[in-house]
Each structure stands twice: as structure tokens, then as C-alpha cells.
Amino acid sequence: MNFTNDKTVIVQGISEAIGSIHASAMKAYGTNVVAGIGPGHGGETIDDIPVFDTIEQALPKVGSVDTSVIVVKPYAVLDAALEAIAAGIRQLILITEGMPPLDMVKLMRKAEATDTLVVGPNTPGIIVPGKLLLGTHKSDFYTPGSVGLISRSGTLTYEVALNLTQAKLGQSLVVGIGGDAILGSSFAQWLQILDEDETTEAIVLVGEIGGTNEEEAAHYISETIDKPVVAYVAGRHAPKGKRLGHAGDIMAAQLSTGKRHNVSLVGADPDTAQSKIEAFKAAKIPVAESPSEIPDLVKKALKPTRKK
């Protein structure tokens, strides 16, 4: 998938405080933010970004749009996303946290029918260091390089990226797939993208308790991915059965029967950190004990693949 700084981007919800702040930050980073959408604010400008009431009004002025970064309130995300899809936009970044699950189900049905990539909800978005920022990543933590990073967490993504940067391990692409119970894109999708990406030499996967995403990713890596992968799982010491922020995804795990997509899960409690760690180890994927250990594991993983 081609993420370059010539792609056109709009921000739906630019009139919200978080929307205006991050629209300006994306533009300053070099992202081609061509418009913002803020009902009732049409005709205004924010950091020289023109604001329109609707996407339909924006398109004749700015032309076709590749990506929409959506930062509206939770119950407005579905309408905003469907508006973007109807306008032909095929990449959606859902920054908003707490989108109603049934709204997400409806959105994903439409996204699948229109071949639309949905990242999130509850995501910091995507960053291609030095080139493109789509979301809320703290850009000075990142530097261009060859390590791809996929994460379910938000702030933990920044910490891992900073550890890599300080170890002189730049990043090729970083994506937060989101922390809500139902997500648009999966670990598997991004693993495939990074496996096929010519600039990526190694992949770091950051998971956390709740759901079966990591177990499925471990199986997918063992069966499909050729590049070295290093994993880290947050939540080792979380009390079992309690909802803790992103770990609220435990609710989704409680609905699981132990198998999804014909993937046998490792461990009796698939929502726990231990089950996920066991799954990665069974797939022969190195697992870091802490974020600070990730750079050393990446360097070890890269040694066999880099020419001396």
C-alpha cells in the first residue's frame, strides 16, 4: 500500500479542538491536508486549511481525496465515515475513542463492499517517518528507517518508537490499529503490508490483553510472514477479568468460543497476556519483557538478514 506525502487528506471534525490541533500538526509535518469538514463552519480557515460544511461541497474545490482522518464525537463517526465512502474516499483513519460497536459493524459491512481501508477506531493513526502523518502520533519520537511497527496501544506506540529511535533503529511505517473492541484493520493486514514493503526489514508487534488478536497474529506470522518479527504484550500484571482502558476489549474475548477464523488458540484464557506470550513463543517469535528490550531483540533478529 502506497503512503506518500502527495496523497490528499481531509480532516472530518476539524472544528473540534483535537481536530484543529492535529490538522495543523499533520500539515506542518508535510502531509497534504487539503480541507477540513466542520458543519456550520464552512468558509472558515484553520492554519490556511479551508473548512467546508460537507465533503460534497469540498470536492469541487480541492479535487479527489485519498484519506480522511475522522475526529468527530463517537456517535457521529458512522455518519462521517459513510459520507467519506460515498465521496469515493478509500482510506479512513478513525481517531475517535468509544465508537458504538453496532455502528462499527455497519461501517465495516460498507467498507468491505467498497474496498475501503479503515484504521481504528481509537487509533493514533499512521506515520511514515519523515514523509507522512495521518493522526496524532508525536512526530519527534520517530525517525526514518527500516523497522515497521504495528500496535494496539496508543501511548505505548510512542514509547516503543522512541526506544527504537534512541537505539538508532528508524521506522519505515508505524500504525496503531486501535484500542476499541471492534477494529477496522487487523494485525494480519498490516503484517502483510509490511512484509511486502521494500523498505521494511523487520517488524515489531505490540499487543495487549483482551480479545484474540495476538494469538491470531502469531499463527499468521508462523504461516505467512517471511521477515523477522519481535513482539511485546502489555498487561502482564493486570487483574484478571477487570476492564482497564484498552483492556476493555476483554468483553470481546468473553464472547469468543476459543476459536476465530479457524485458528486454534494457545492457552486456556485467550484474553490474558500469558496466552498471547505463549502463542508468540510457540510461533518462535521473540517476546520482549519490557519496551526497553525491544531494540536489542530487533538488532538480533536483523543480523541474519543483513549483509555483513
Score class of each variant (00 low, 15 high):
209 I>A: 07
1 M>H: 11
177 I>N: 13
282 A>K: 12
212 T>E: 05
65 V>L: 11
155 T>K: 14
77 V>W: 15
68 S>T: 11
92 L>W: 10
288 A>G: 06
78 L>W: 02
7 K>R: 03
301 A>G: 05
99 M>S: 02
267 G>M: 14
34 V>K: 02
202 A>R: 04
131 K>W: 01
189 Q>N: 06
294 I>C: 12
291 P>G: 04
65 V>A: 10
112 E>C: 10
234 A>S: 13
154 G>K: 02
185 S>V: 03
158 Y>D: 13
96 T>G: 06
241 G>E: 00
29 Y>C: 04
279 A>G: 13
286 P>C: 02
282 A>V: 00
205 L>Y: 08
162 L>A: 10
259 K>H: 03
202 A>T: 12
213 N>T: 12
293 E>A: 13
108 M>L: 15
223 E>L: 12
272 T>R: 01
253 A>H: 01
248 G>W: 06
22 H>M: 10
266 V>C: 11
19 G>V: 12
122 N>E: 05
5 N>F: 06
197 D>T: 02
1 M>R: 10
16 E>K: 14
230 V>C: 08
210 G>P: 00
205 L>V: 15
45 T>K: 15
77 V>Y: 14
97 E>L: 01
184 G>Q: 09
222 S>K: 14
45 T>R: 13
247 A>C: 03
186 S>Y: 10
41 H>M: 08
287 V>C: 00
76 A>K: 07
132 L>Y: 09
46 I>W: 07
117 L>F: 04
219 H>S: 08
87 A>P: 10
92 L>K: 09
165 T>G: 01
90 R>H: 14
235 G>I: 00
14 I>C: 07
259 K>L: 07
188 A>E: 14
307 K>Y: 03
82 L>W: 04
33 V>I: 12
58 A>P: 00
191 L>W: 07
30 G>W: 09
